[in-house]
C-alpha cells in the first residue's frame, strides 16, 4: 500500500474518533496495520509525515495522544 493511502487511513481513523475517544500513537499503529495489512513501521512513518505537515498534532491530557489540530 502506498504511504499516502496509509496516511489517509490514519487521518480517517483519528477524524472518526474525534470527540469520542482520544487515540494514542500505539492505538493508531495497531489498528491501521491490522486493517491495511501493513507493518507498524509503515504506519509510524506515515503518521510522522502527517504530524510534520501539521495535519495531526500530539496533545497531552494525562497521556500523549494524536489529534486533529483545532481550527484557528
Amino acid at each position: 500500500m502506498e504511504k499516502a493511502e496509509v496516511a489517509k487511513k490514519i487521518y480517517e481513523l483519528v477524524e472518526k474518533s474525534t470527540g469520542k475517544k482520544k487515540l494514542k500513537s500505539s492505538d493508531i499503529q495497531k489498528t491501521v496495520s491490522a486493517e491495511a495489512g501493513v507493518t507498524r513501521d509503515e504506519v509510524k512513518d506515515a503518521l510522522r509525515d502527517l504530524v510534520d505537515e501539521g495535519k495531526l498534532i500530539y496533545t497531552y491530557f494525562g497521556g500523549s495522544f494524536v489529534e486533529i489540530p483545532p481550527k484557528q
Binding site: 500513537s25 510522522r48 504530524v51 501539521g54 497531552y60 500523549s64 489529534e67 489540530p69 483545532p70
Partner: peptide
Amino acid sequence: HGGIVGVRGYGSGVIG
C-alpha cells in the same frame, strides 16, 4: 498543565 502546545513535528519537549 498539558494541552496542545509544542513545536511542529514533535510530541515531546514542551510542557504546556
